[in-house]
Design a protein around this nucleic acid. Sequence first.
DNA 1: CTGACGATTCACT
DNA 2: GTGAATCGTCAGC
Length: 213
Amino acid sequence: MPVNYRKLAASFYLHDDVLWVARNLLGKLLCTHIDGLFCCGRIVETEAYNGVGDKASHAYGGRRTARTDVMFREGGLAYVYLCYGIHHMFNVVSAGADHPHATLVRAIEPVEGKEEMLSRSGKKKWDHSIGSGPGNVCKAMGIRTSHTGQSLQGDLIWLADDGYRVDEAGVARTPRIGVDYAGEDAKRLYRFIITASPFVSAGTFTRRFLSGT
DNA sequence: CTGACGATTCACT
DNA sequence: GTGAATCGTCAGC
């Protein structure tokens, strides 16, 4: 990892407000050293899943199963699950034990290891879709469901700060994507994006929401 | 054991 | 905009 990167401290993940975590993950670097390849990308889109009271969360109502168990553990772990039988989704578990908070990383801007990401994506030509959307993020970074439960203090998957700062004017909040089933919770502004990034997913939805039409 | 379905993506119209 | 791909998870029997 480049010398100016600082791995996020364990204390970052213990914050009890998942909205704070989701907001402050913007601009941080998601790094992986998987299959012998080092890659990292700057996080530009996140979604917060706010504990047992959030209908959109896998932990809603205190549901604790083999899959969701990791969310109930102390913050600082990776929660990776399979969606639609095909797509791997990477989440950052936060807060203390028995507070199942998670933040889904939905988009990154590739910074290091771009060739490896392109290769993993299976695409021939570079384009924004490489880091856009939660399934694509995992594909590019090599993250798989077998990595669920991994410590983010470890050397497979971790988060880093290189001093980059995201000012409030460059951040927007919208409802989350694909959680229409969650009733009132579907409307909450739990999605955070760096507005100017071309890697942010769900562009049509995002523009419509932000323009109020 | 069975069946319905999902925090999605992509090809095609 | 529509529909198919594809399989682990979980509720229910």
